[in-house]
């Protein structure tokens, strides 16, 4: 018995030490999913907390029951409980554990149903500020962000004004990717010949890490970008300066861009070709490529 106690002591000490180390480490790093900086990510985080706590209603009793049963009924326990080898059925008990998880799952299901609507990525965000449109194209292996109204485009980073909804339209001119900006919102796929949408906003200024979550070839690890949230005045100034000082995004330039390569630095463009985003999508939908050359088949 004392040997067991000694072992338990050592194990609890080790576990404790690991937990403390982990805690110290984690308090010093950025954990995007748990540190939302926008209304969508924030709602997702609160939902996470709610679901985890309701799951614990079943999980904790399971752990306690397991520990109790194993401790009490192990063969070498001198105070072992009564042994009933033929006890195999109890309508009441079995009914209980069909019922309790069922009730719990019903509750979680209702939450899920509502949350799926409330956090539908296509749902416009309510705000007093007018939404800004950004068209996103995943390329091999870089992200192209087009601001059709500001007439600018950027590679691997974009700026957004704080507290303003951003309306993303997304597609791919490469294999499928998944657009993920965890501190602002969850993911959405980008697929060639198709368009997806996503609304998000940032409620504080800062630089947020985003990446592709879906493997897309050898340069996949370079498919990351920064979203820089700034005040609305500096956003306007930035957009104007990009428009003034950057080279044109002509069709030729775009055809160069879509060649497989990794660009790890930020690049700016002005005056992207008219309707570039739709042209890219359509190039997969129709046999006649609008000057797009050979489409990715």
């Amino acid at each position: 018995m004392s040997k067991t106690k000694k072992r338990l002591g050592i194990v609890s000490f080790l576990v404790f030490a690991v937990l403390i180390t982990a805690g110290v480490y984690l308090s010093h790093v950025n954990i995007p999913v748990l540190q939302p900086r926008g209304p969508i990510a924030d709602k997702e985080f609160k939902l996470l907390v709610l679901i985890v706590s309701s799951m614990l209603i079943v999980a904790v009793p399971v752990f306690l029951l397991l520990a109790y049963v194993v401790w009490r009924y192990r063969e070498d326990n001198p105070k072992r409980g009564k042994y009933e080898p033929d006890w195999e059925h109890s309508r009441w008990l079995e009914g209980l554990w069909w019922a309790i998880p069922a009730i719990l799952i019903t509750i979680v299901s209702v939450i899920t149903w509502n949350a799926s609507y409330a956090l539908n990525p296509y749902l416009p965000l309510k705000s007093s500020n007018k939404a800004i449109t950004i068209q996103v194209v995943s390329l091999n292996w870089k992200w192209l962000f087009i601001y059709p109204n500001q007439k600018i485009a950027t590679i691997n980073y974009f700026e957004l004004p704080v507290n303003t909804p951003i309306h993303f339209y997304l597609t791919s001119d490469a294999p499928m990717n998944s657009f993920w900006l965890p501190q602002l919102s969850g993911q959405i796929f980008t697929m060639a010949g198709m368009q997806t949408q996503l609304y998000l906003a940032a409620d504080s200024m800062g630089t947020y890490y985003g990446s592709s979550a879906n493997i897309s070839g050898v340069g996949f690890a370079n498919m990351h970008f920064n979203a820089i949230s700034v005040s609305s005045t500096s956003f306007k100034a930035w957009a104007l300066s990009v428009k003034d000082k950057s080279p044109n995004l002509s069709m030729n330039e775009y055809m160069m861009l879509r060649q497989p390569s990794s660009i790890v630095k930020n690049v700016n463009y002005s005056y992207p070709v008219n309707c570039l985003f739709n042209t890219i999508i359509n190039s997969y939908m129709m046999p006649v490529a609008n000057g797009m050359g050979k489409v990715g088949v």
């Binding site: 999913v33 990510a41 709602k43 997702e44 939902l47 996470l48 679901i51 985890v52 799951m55 614990l56 999980a59 399971v62 752990f63 979680v108 939450i111 899920t112 949350a115 799926s116 409330a118 956090l119 990525p121 998944s178 993920w180 965890p182 919102s185 969850g186 993911q187 959405i188 979550a213 879906n214």
Partner: peptide
């Protein structure tokens, strides 16, 4: 049980948006 809880989390679509392929 721990893995299963994570599974229920990811069964909630808006949460899966944050966990998919991570």
């Amino acid at each position: 049980t721990i893995g299963g809880m994570a599974g229920v989390l990811m069964a909630v679509p808006p949460l899966d948006f944050q966990f998919h392929n991570s």
